[in-house]
Simulated scan of single mutants.
Amino acid sequence: MPPNLHHLIREATRLTRVGDLTGATRAIQQALGNGATPANDVIDVEAREVRDLALPGRDAVDSRLRGNDERGGNDGEGANDATARPPTPEAFIAGRFGGPDLLGRDYKLYIPPDAAHQPRPLVLMLHGCTQDPDDFARGTRMNELAREEGAFVLYPAQAQRANAQRCWNWFKHSHQARGRGEVQLLADMVRDVIASHAIDASRVYVAGLSAGGAMAANLVAAFPELFAAVGVHSGLPAGAAQDLQSGLAAMKQGPRNAGTVLAVPAIVFHGDADNVVHPANGDAVIKAASGSDALVATETGTTKGRRFTRRLHADRDGGRVRAEHWVVHGAGHAWSGGSARGSYADAIGPDASAEMLRFFREHARG
């Protein structure tokens, strides 16, 4: 029996209570000794339990999100009556995916108001180095905008034991392909959240900043069937590096290759004064997503005192816009139009969060 048996039993009980039978089964299998860790993964993290936020009425929120009325007394009468279901409140909850083994990761999940009544979009947000989900949520203001959009937002947290600076390991070949490392872990986490909540699987997106942006590109390159579009802010193209040395070179000088072709539409933000990740990486992401250099429109403007150039790239047949490139002039390595309440956020310039949500709205898978 594993040494963390009691934790696994508690986790299985909690998952059963909230309706996640798949996760409960996985926890029971681990308790019985069947939860082996894949040998080809190089992640090394400490196991630790992360408790959910002490939100008022959390159990009731979880029950209503899954359409379960625990008030009793009517034997299910009115279960399909919309007027019998009170609106579900918004929430920002903490959780953990993968159990307390070497593949587990903490996360925060934003749940929009009234999320149980119809399938909603999901945006996976990957933070940059030294950041965490709460910091990233504050800096991007994504939860506030997702409330208006009616979208779920999932913020995985990189473990410090996996990377000392809490960077996603985008530059390692062992975290770039299906079935391996952090790309597989993140894809599995997304699928688990889709299965546990009222989410439209055709409207699942991923966005990230810096190392998170590079990992977002890796993720859609490895799992194009899972995501409808990607947003890369101050990041790098998929496959830009294979190890730390080539990763640092790509950050400083731009990628040596065009990167792996992206089979999903992409929106890219990059400051042309970024001295951490060279702006040439933004060009490379766009080229990997558009498949051509064909422009359909170029726009220039100024927002909050910051000039920008926006270029739209069509797909191969010259029809629908497939890639959108925002170059923010004079901006450094920070999320454009963000909030000073978070790190690596620039309060001036075009609102990257709002523009990404607008771009995502325009692209649904299938």
Rank of each mutant, 00 (worst) to 15 (best):
E46N: 02
R48H: 07
E49K: 13
E49Y: 15
R51H: 15
R51A: 14
A54R: 00
P56L: 09
R58K: 00
D59E: 06
A60N: 07
A60F: 06
S63I: 09
S63E: 11
E70C: 05
R71N: 14
G72W: 14
N74W: 15
D75F: 13
G76T: 12
G76I: 10
N80Q: 15
N80M: 15
D81V: 10
D81T: 12
A84Q: 10
R85H: 13
E90H: 15
F92Y: 13
A94Q: 07
A94D: 08
A94W: 03
A94V: 05
A94I: 04
G95Q: 09
R96S: 14
G99C: 09
G99W: 06
P100G: 11
R105Q: 04
Y107R: 07
Y107P: 09
Y110C: 12
Y110P: 11
P113E: 06
A115D: 14
A115K: 13
A116H: 05
H117D: 15
R120M: 08
R120Y: 12
R120E: 04
P121A: 08
L122E: 00
L122A: 01
V123P: 02
V123W: 06
M125V: 01
L126K: 14
H127V: 05
T130P: 08
T130Q: 04
T130K: 03
Q131N: 00
Q131T: 00
D132H: 13
P133D: 01
D134N: 08
D134H: 04
D135A: 01
R141G: 03
N143C: 06
E144R: 10
L145N: 04
L145I: 04
R147I: 01
R147G: 00
A151P: 01
V153P: 01
L154Y: 08
L154R: 06
Y155R: 05
Q158I: 10
Q158Y: 10
A159G: 02
Q160N: 11
R161H: 10
A164H: 03
A164N: 03
A164Q: 02
Q165H: 07
Q165D: 09
R166I: 02
C167T: 10
C167A: 00
N169Q: 11
N169A: 07
